[in-house]
Write a protein that binds this DNA or RNA. Structure first.
Lengths: 237, 237
DNA sequence: GGGTAACATTTGTCTAGTTGTATAGCTGAT
DNA sequence: ATCAGCTATACAACTAGACAAATGTTACCC
């Protein structure tokens, strides 16, 4: 007759609290010390419960910060028309962006090929962090042909969305010609930005977008935090 | 001529030690390993003795912590005027309270009926643990009509007693209109808070308190640890 | 304003000690 | 022969305390 261990009943109680909405998704749980006081139990026992919940993907902890209710993996549709803001708004989440770097440099081989340029042609490289409800979702790099899109740099600095910035440069619409998906492990830098641990799984997508005339406009590489995003393909989005 | 078993003589010796005041009530006994060394027997034999004493309510053990001398069952008078602090102080024990949760939510059917509200009306729910000399005595849940008592939440957070908090909200006096008593078995969560074993007997009281005008003010449910409390009814307290 | 230094908070990890439970075996009395 | 009483050993579950490492906050200075 194995009675339910203490840590398990704590895990159940906390799971119930989350399910009841007493703690918001993405929100912070009380500190372990507070929880141990609330349940009248040693902190280690609380940690055992939290570890169980973390293994189920219900919560995740950050040393020095706290324990957070894990947000459900975001479904991110990949199709002809990929719009970050729309994709997230549809899921009922608040999209956000953080500009990391914005620079003009010479195109590399890979980039030149994708954008139908010559290696060495000037390209505008946008590095940014995509957020959902304030939580990092993806690292995005977009490479634009600088020669074709004058004024894009300023537009990207001011506008909150790439779609809007492109529109200001005369690109009314654009679609994805191709998207490739691969699974990788996070490097230290990526892990830092995405607030995941080094070596955690990430999804890398590589894409080429073209305007209505079929001219390549953007060469994009995006790294998604593997446990926060599920890519979906096939809806006619 | 059945000789007294070894474990029994150990139990007698320890019981005598307690009676002689060699171990304070509420204090910790030496670890089982130490006792087994002292009596020159196996730890299991000591455990057999302790189990016997625990069955008599003389001691109680907490895994990982030790074996403690049990306090005598507290007499807890239930009448028109039930005040936790007073009830315990009269017995010469030090009352204590620990706030577990405090939330505002919609009233359930049962609660609405008792408080003469409509199901769905906002109620303030107080969950707390009552202590005597630091030992858990009872789990208490009190449901207040949130609409009638603005500011009660803050008062409950700051004051140590419900009576005082109510006074701050203008309730000078209140009495019990009714108390129902039932015997139940402890659930895992209850057992955790009361530091008893799952399935141990508990006393559940359900009460409705009214102010001087007869308006229901509190709907209370309390779970007493069965072997630590004896409810008394009938004194004109 | 921006950088930085100090401080408090919080999680991560480690060591040690204690009770709870399970299994196996020995011994003497009936 | 059986069986209750006890020994022996091992592991699981929980407590207790301490310290390290990361983070967030605040005050302060230039």
């Amino acid at each position: 007759m194995a009675r339910t261990p203490v840590w398990k009943s704590i895990a159940i109680a906390l799971t119930d609290d989350i399910a009841q909405g007493r703690y918001e998704t993405g929100g912070k749980l009380p500190a372990e010390a507070q929880l141990s006081a609330r349940f009248g139990v040693n902190r280690h026992t609380v940690r055992r419960a939290l570890a169980d919940m973390a293994a189920q993907g219900l919560v995740h902890s950050r040393r020095g910060a706290g324990v957070f209710v894990a947000a459900k993996p975001t479904d991110y549709p990949i199709g002809k028309r990929v719009r970050f803001h729309q994709n997230l708004a549809r899921e009922g989440r608040t999209p956000g962006k953080k500009l990391l770097t914005l620079e003009t440099r010479a195109a590399g081989l890979r980039e030149a090929e994708a954008l139908r340029l010559t290696a060495g042609d000037p390209v505008l490289v946008y590095d940014g962090l995509s957020l959902a409800d304030g939580q990092p979702i993806a690292l995005a790099q977009a490479v634009f042909p600088a020669g074709l899109l004058p004024g894009l740099r300023e537009a990207l600095e001011e506008e909150s969305s790439i779609t809007k910035a492109l529109k200001r440069c005369g690109v009314e619409d654009y679609t994805r010609r191709e998207t490739r998906i691969a699974a990788k492990l996070a490097t230290a830098t990526q892990a830092l930005h995405l607030q995941i641990s080094e070596g955690a799984p990430i999804l890398r997508t590589t894409s080429v977008s073209v305007d209505t005339t079929g001219t390549p406009i953007e060469f994009g590489r995006t790294w998604f935090a593997g446990d926060r995003v599920t890519l979906t393909v096939g809806g006619e989005t």
